[in-house]
Structures are given as C-alpha cells and as structure tokens.
Simulated scan of single mutants.
Amino acid sequence: MIRIKAGVPRRTRPRTRARRPLRRALALGLPTVWGAIAITYKLTCPLAQQNSLGARIVTSAVFFAVGTGLIVQVRRSLLRELRQIRQIAGAAQNALLRPLPPRLDGLNIAAAQLSAERGAVVGGDLYEVIATEHGVRVVMGDVRGHGISAIGTVAAVLGSFREAAHDEPDLEGVLRRLERALARHLRERARAEHPASGGLDPDSPVAEEFVTVLLLEIGRDGEVRGLNCGHPWPYLLSGERVEPLARADPLPPLGPFPLPTELPFVCCGQLLPGEAVFFYTDGAEDARDTRGRFFPLRDALTAAVAQHPLPTPQSVLGSVFTALLRHAGGTPTDDVAILILSNDRRPAWPTSGARGTARQATTAQHPTNYPQHNGV
C-alpha cells in the first residue's frame, strides 16, 4: 500500500514519477555510451589497428579513460543508493526511538543514545517520556544483546508503553502490559525462527531473552514513584550532590520469570524544583578503558555538576558523554543510553530542608518488600 504524506501537493507527484525513468535511462545510458566509444575506437580507428609502441600507448589510454568513466559512474550510482538507504533507515530509527521534546510538562529533558553497531542509531537500549493525565511517565530499558538484533524487542516494548502509559491508571498495570507485549513478541519470534516448534520452546535461545525495565512516574507535585525490573536505579542530582534516587532491590528482568502477584511501587520522595534525575543503561558503567577499568559514572556526574554554575540537562549530558568517549577511547563495546529530567516548575512548597524530610517520610510510609536480586 502506498501512503501519501500529508501536506504534499498532488501536482508534484507526476513530476517525481516522470524523473524516475529519466534517471534510470541516464544510469544505464552513460555506461552504454562509454562502452560504445571503446568498441567503436577499436573497430574503426586506424590507430587502434597498428602494433607500434605509440599506437599501443594511445589505445591503452583510451581504454583506461573508458574504464575510469565506468568506475566513476558506478560509484556515483552506489553512493546515491547508499544515501537513500541511510535516509530511509534514519527515518525508521527516528520513528522507533523518536526524539524527545526539550521540555515536557514543566520538565527539561536531554537524552542521547550511542549504538555499538556501526552505522546504527538505535540499539538495544530504549527510553521514552510521556505526559499523561496520571503524571509524566518515563521508561528506561535495556534489551539483552545490542545493536540491530535487539531492535525488534525494543519496538515491542516501546509500542506497548506508549499505549499503556495513557490507558493504565497505575504503574503496575503499565508494567504488566509490557510483560504481555514482550511475551507475545518472543512467541512470534520463536515461531518465525523455528516454525516446527509451534511456540516458545524453553530450550530455544529466544526463551533466554530478557529486558530490564525501569518505570517512573512524576506527579504534578513532584512526587516520584517507581517500579524496577533489573535496571540500575537513576541518580538524583540535587545541587552538587549525586546520590541514588532509591536503594530498593529491583525485581528480576522481564522475560525469564513471571511478575509476582503484588507489585508494590517504590516511593522515591519529591523531585524538587532545580533537581534532576539521571537515567542510564549499564553500558555507561560497563565501558572500559585500555587497562580494563570501568567508567566511573558517579565521579563523572559529580564533576559535570560541579563544573557548571547552573547545570542544565544538556550541559550535564554533554560533559558525561565526552568523559565516557574519552574513557573508552572511541565507541564503547555496548549500547549506551542516557536520559536526564530536571524539574523546572515553580516551587509550590518550602525547599529548605524539604529533601531529607520528604524522602524519609515517604520511605517510612511505603517500605519495599522486593526479593533480593542483584540485577544483570
């Protein structure tokens, strides 16, 4: 089915159709002309029939020019097709992991992703921020593996989150929707790769796939709630302090084990005006230098916050990514995704001393009873 892009005048389409046969004719015609010139010279030119050294040099020069022209023409055609393929791939990747707005419901946003697959923009990491009637909802995840092979799973999880974030009144419902979407995707993938099995074989490599998922909800009053399945907790940037947003043990990742019957959320206190939350995937902490040392993410965050008088999400993101690439000596071996949200809303409560009081009170009211799990 051909889909017409909205806003494109209809009168421009026949011109585009008329240009395609002309381009094809030129693409085939120029090599044909070059070949015809070479054959005509060889058959009709008297100089080409002579065996003297000068005649051979001239004949070689003519065929060299013809061959060079053919190579240049083929190279131009291949580069043109490569540019078109990259444009199509870039549009598809942007539709999958679409660029986030710089500001959403009073929150400033900065995000970046680096794929370990050369030439790819999207890898096995995923993130999304959506403003809903229930608050701003955030997902950060990491698919097992990296690069292009993980894109299918990323699409399944992100597509489910973009619907569930608006439909489900609480984070528990969103997480269960993600679990069902992942299970369907893995079953369909198993049937496609092994039609004879008829389903998801426990011994199949597909059955070992998993996704770490972190769900966060930021209310209008700055109240932060979260559900974590095997993902690193984000950092809270408060002034020059860098500390984990929560310390509760996460649930196992989605995929290998079913979710428990009860999913108690973790209340992370309030995100006060001027504070920020730094999300990341484990590729940031696992990046190594030439000596095998891991990237000191928390130290890099502390330095990024300290070197800017008024740090913004964009400045912190640039500083951390620069330090990460310098540490890894170029592109890391694993996908890396970073997302920063800062509260730029007007303060509606006293900020002096509110951080510690609010965090202690909410932690006492909502104790966590997650099973022990060290993540992945």
Rank of each mutant, 00 (worst) to 15 (best):
D299S: 14
G269A: 12
G239C: 11
A246M: 12
R291M: 07
E262G: 00
V242M: 09
A300C: 09
G222K: 03
A276K: 07
P250G: 08
L227H: 04
P244A: 05
V266C: 13
G226C: 14
A246S: 14
A287L: 11
H308S: 14
P273N: 06
R241L: 12
I218F: 01
P260S: 10
G222D: 07
A246G: 15
D289S: 08
I218Q: 02
A248C: 06
P234G: 05
R298H: 02
G292K: 10
P296H: 13
S238M: 00
D282Y: 06
A303N: 12
L237H: 04
P234H: 06
T302F: 01
P244Q: 11
A248G: 04
G283A: 10
A300P: 02
L237V: 09
P244S: 07
Y235N: 02
L263F: 02
P258V: 06
F295I: 09
R241Q: 15
F278E: 02
P250K: 08
H231C: 04
T302C: 04
R241N: 13
V305I: 13
A248W: 00
T290P: 00
R288P: 02
P264M: 04
E285D: 07
R288G: 07
F295E: 08
P273E: 06
D221S: 13
E240H: 13
D221I: 05
V242S: 05
L245P: 06
V242P: 03
A287I: 11
P260L: 06
T302N: 02
L236Y: 01
L216C: 15
F294A: 13
T290M: 08
H231P: 00
E275T: 03
G255W: 09
E243H: 08
P244W: 10
F257S: 09
I218Y: 03
G219P: 02
Y235I: 01
W233F: 07
L259R: 06
P253M: 08
P258D: 15
D282R: 07
D221R: 12
V242Q: 07
P258Q: 13
A246W: 03
E275F: 06
A306W: 01
F294T: 07
P296L: 10
E243A: 15
L227S: 05
F278M: 09
R220P: 00
L263Q: 06
R293W: 05
E262L: 07
V224Y: 01
C268S: 11
L245M: 13
C267F: 00
R293Q: 15
I218A: 05
Y235D: 05
D289H: 11
G219R: 14
R225F: 00
G269D: 10
L301A: 08
L271R: 02
R220G: 14
E285Q: 14
G274K: 04
P264T: 05
L301T: 08
L272V: 03
G230H: 04
P234K: 07
D221G: 13
R293Y: 08
R293A: 15
L297W: 09
A246R: 06
G269H: 10
P232F: 04
G222I: 05
A276Q: 13
S238A: 15
E275V: 04
L272H: 02
E243I: 12
P232G: 12
